[in-house]
Design a binder for these strands. Structure first.
Lengths: 161, 161
DNA sequence: CTCGGTATCGCAACATGTTGCATCTGCAGT
DNA sequence: ACTGCAGATGCAACATGTTGCGATACCGAG
């Protein structure tokens, strides 16, 4: 029974995650609504990071009647489901990561506003996580982490000035 | 000429820092205004962390005509002067540190909402700073750093559940 | 297929900052 | 003391979320 009547192209790993969401909601006594469908549609076409405001915009593109508070509340629900994760960027704004993505932290340069990812498997990150856990009993949420500072390029320039 | 005509008690280390602010502003072509005097007065009586909103409230207590945007703009100026530093708490809200305080990062538990300080001289922090600098050429702003995660106590409880 | 409970929605008000602009004022120079 | 002007202020509008509440509609049971 493979590909029986499947319309457009079928990307198993990706689509299966989104297809299961309605039932995963109902299994928790939650509901599958048109508004949630819109947001999930937007998320399924999103790669990497997005701000809350960006998601609201993209939902409005699909449905001009989109209400921001509904989007934010749905994002909370989806975070409980493990579909997205949020962190706060260097400016304090919300930033959402669509899963599955490799867990990663961010480096943000306050001089040039540039941003880099730091994989959770980066030796530096891994060492810090273990050190904080052993030294303080504290388990860090790596993906929630943004390190603010000055990047190599900007540091070089500052020396000149 | 010691304590000549000094009214109330004189706390050299503390008061001198605040007393120098007007001239430090003028030296940069900036101005010393009543609104700034109010904010500096509030800051001089503040210990540790405060949110922006809290500072606005305290200024309003001294002068009901206080305008929030003026407070925020003055905080920017004072940050340039090195009088305060800001970071973003786990919820993304602004958090100001009144100097001089030892540089420190924060641990924030997303389960119990507890918060702990982590000194810049903490071996874990120091090691991470050096590692990121050597590994990525990136200089971390330690005081801007908030690590979100789960504290030891809450981790113990989660195992039970 | 209808019904009822309750999760969700839409909306309005609020919280916390940020920004543009016309007006005002601190203060350096005379 | 007076004056000019760049730096500050006040105000209003906006950006990004959050929250309370009454109305709506999803969906499991009968």
């Amino acid at each position: 029974m493979r590909a029986t009547g499947s319309p457009s192209e079928w990307r198993p790993e990706v689509d299966r995650q989104w297809a299961g969401i309605p039932d995963r909601l109902r299994a928790r006594g939650l509901r599958w609504t048109p508004q949630r469908r819109i947001l999930v549609e937007v998320l399924s076409g999103t790669d990497g990071h997005v701000t809350g405001a960006e998601l609201v915009e993209r939902c409005k593109a699909l449905d001009p009647d989109t209400i921001p508070s509904t989007v934010y509340r749905t994002l909370d629900v989806l975070e409980d489901l493990g579909v997205v994760r949020h962190s706060h960027g260097a400016d304090g704004r919300e930033e959402f990561h669509v899963l599955p993505v490799e867990e990663h932290a961010h480096l943000y340069c306050r001089v040039c506003s540039g941003s880099w990812e730091l994989g959770a498997d980066d030796p530096v990150v891994a060492a810090a996580v273990v050190a904080v856990r052993d030294g303080h009993g504290f388990a860090i949420d790596v993906p929630h982490l943004t390190l603010t500072g000055v990047c190599a390029a900007c540091r070089a320039k500052e020396v000149d000035a």
